[in-house]
Structure formats: structure tokens, C-alpha cells
């Protein structure tokens, strides 16, 4: 089962055309997991990977006749420290940032999340989601400047009654695919070189044999 876990967290698979990684960000209890569950309905089986403090949701869809495999990465409590491990961001193709319309601090903290996101993924599409509108429909008559200022798409949603939930995730998948087709992935190449560097260092200092065969890296 460890091997299965490892292969699921093998980030190289995200280089293939039909595989996308979408991450969720936001404070505790804004409803990130409830949104995922509403989108996936009864068909989902989340993988709780406690070693990495994340929950992995798998989803398959067909777009323009091509099967697309989507990995949604959700935090599993790590967001309380308001910072995620770099591997959470690595090779992600889109980000869904969520706040709770009943708690101002979760909206204000979007700037913290956004700043960290852009440190690791300067270019990927980011969708801003205002959740729990069922609790206070009057908020849908307000405009929220954070998304406007950053030029990010904005959605009023409710994980409880389902309003706009499916739209958010379908849009996220479309934007992720569009990003993959158009980006140079320069940062991914840099990260790959850094990973190889770390690996080479580890090999020199460790007596253990390398379990996985190292991919040859191009000069």
C-alpha cells in the first residue's frame, strides 16, 4: 500500500497531457472538503495521506473526446499553520481559493494564501470562491475587491445547497488544461533540476541503495 501511496504522489505523472493537478487553499472550516464532496457526490473515495497532511480526490472526465484524469489536492489540517509544504504547490495547474462569507478573517487571509501560492506558482489560474452563501444570501449583493484587484474569477457558492459548486470545479479543470497547453513550464524545469541536485547529494552521503531508478536528466 505504501507503493500505491508513493505512486499516487509521484509528481512526474502530472507532466502527461491527460493529467492535471488542482489544489485547494483557504483557512480552516471554510468548507473546502464539503465543496469537494458536493462536486464528486457519492462516487468519490478520498485518500487520506496523513504523512503528507493532505487529502487526495481523484476524478475522471472527458473533454473534447479525451479522457482527463484530475487529482484534487485538499489540505488535511495543515492550513491551520497558514502555510503548505512546497510539494503541495509543485506541478499544480490550477488553484481554488475558498473563504467563508460569514467570517471576515477567512477573506482577509486570502492575501496570505495568494502570496504563498504565487511564490511557488506565479502563473497558474486561481479561482476565488465565496462559500456558505446559503447562510446569508445578502452577501451576493456585495462585491469583493480582492478577486477584482488581482484579476481572478470569482464565484458565490454554497456547498450545502450546491449552488455553483459544479461550475467552479468544471471551470477549474478547463483553466488547468488551458494552462498546461500554453505554459512554458519553465519553473517546473528549474524544480526538476533542484530535485536531481538534492537526489545526487543524498546518493553521495547515503550508504543505502537507491530504490527507484533515477531518470536521466537532460543537460
Amino acid at each position: 500500500m505504501d507503493a500505491g501511496g508513493n505512486s499516487d504522489l509521484d509528481l512526474d505523472k502530472y507532466d502527461s497531457d491527460e493529467q492535471v493537478k488542482i489544489i485547494c487553499l483557504g483557512d480552516s472550516a471554510v468548507g473546502k472538503s464539503k465543496l469537494m464532496e458536493r462536486f464528486l457526490m457519492d462516487g468519490y473515495r478520498p485518500q487520506q495521506l496523513s504523512t503528507y497532511a493532505l487529502t487526495l480526490y481523484k476524478y475522471t472526465t472527458t473533454i473534447n473526446g479525451q479522457t482527463i484524469l484530475v487529482d484534487f489536492w485538499d489540505t488535511a489540517g495543515q492550513e491551520r499553520f497558514r502555510s503548505m509544504h512546497p510539494s503541495y504547490y509543485h506541478k499544480s495547474h490550477a488553484c481554488v481559493m475558498v473563504f467563508d462569507v460569514q467570517r471576515k478573517i477567512t477573506y482577509k487571509n486570502l492575501t496570505v494564501w495568494y502570496k504563498e501560492l504565487r511564490e511557488y506558482r506565479p502563473e497558474i489560474p486561481c479561482l476565488v470562491v465565496a462559500n456558505k452563501i446559503d447562510a446569508d444570501m445578502k452577501v451576493t449583493q456585495k462585491s469583493f475587491n480582492f478577486a477584482k484587484k488581482q484579476g481572478l474569477p470569482f464565484y458565490f457558492v454554497s456547498a450545502a445547497d450546491g449552488t455553483n459548486v459544479v461550475k467552479v470545479f468544471k471551470d477549474a479543470i478547463q483553466m488547468a488544461l488551458s494552462y498546461k497547453r500554453n505554459s512554458s513550464d519553465f519553473m517546473d524545469e528549474v524544480m526538476r533540476e533542484l530535485e536531481n541536485f538534492d537526489l545526487e547529494n543524498k546518493e553521495e552521503s547515503s550508504d543505502k541503495e537507491e530504490t527507484q531508478e533515477e531518470k536521466p536528466s537532460s543537460a
Binding site: 471576515k104 477573506y107 451576493t140 449583493q141 480582492f146 450546491g162
Partner: peptide, 30 residues
Amino acid sequence: NRRRRGDPDFVYDLEVEFGEGSVKETCSWD
């Protein structure tokens, strides 16, 4: 407030437009 599959008024892909064209009041949080 939850709507589940099987509820009479359940819609899986429920989309609602929230006055995209209208002038909105800036949220006091901003």
C-alpha cells in the same frame, strides 16, 4: 440547508447568476 441526491428539488449542476451586470455595493470588509 443541504440538498442531497434524491431530494425532490435536487439539481446536481445548479448554476445561479448573481447580478453580474448590476452595480454592487462594496463589501464593508474591503
